[in-house]
Amino acid sequence: MSMEAITDKHGVKRYLITLNVNGDSYTKVVKGNTVLVNVLRDDLDLTGTKKGCELGDCGSCTVLMDGKPVNSCLVLAVEADGREITTIEGLAQHEQLDRLQDSFVNHAAVQCGYCTPGMIMSAKALLSKNPDPTEQEVREAIAGNLCRCTGYVNIVKAVLAAAKAEGGAAR
């Protein structure tokens, strides 16, 4: 890593990183092993991004990094330096929910809600590159997001309906 490190008095190296999160720029000092999800939750108080396994299995911590969905528990904070990060808090514009968020509410796709932010972020990434996905494409896009409540039935419906609604708008 070409990044410059500051070494503290215990000999631990720390790095200065700049993250662009939901359109705002933040500069933070992190350790080499700090993961992105902890910077978002602990330093920036963006607790909409959830931790379910810290192993990359559940997808609850999914955020967009330069538009691509990533498990933020598997991304080092230093890897996110200079990147554009979108979290669930960045989707709604003021009072106006994103179509996906609206659709999740209207299709009863939310039960306990713990997987919901990650699920919506994965769906957001899908619809950004594929505005008119098939059901199979939706299932593939959210296959890395585990939900224990819904059997995915209404989640798949909600994503397909949001795609339809979005297709109707000028894109």
């Binding site: 909409g48 669930i88 968020q101 999740f104 009863a108 939310v110 919901t116 932010p117």
Partner: peptide, 23 residues
């Protein structure tokens, strides 16, 4: 009736606080 969940909105915006989210 199929009324929307009372906590639907806070759960899709990430505002809903679970115990691990509290400080």
């Amino acid at each position: 009736k199929n009324l929307p969940k009372i906590d639907g909105r806070v759960k899709v915006t990430g505002q809903a606080k679970y115990t691990g989210d509290l400080k």
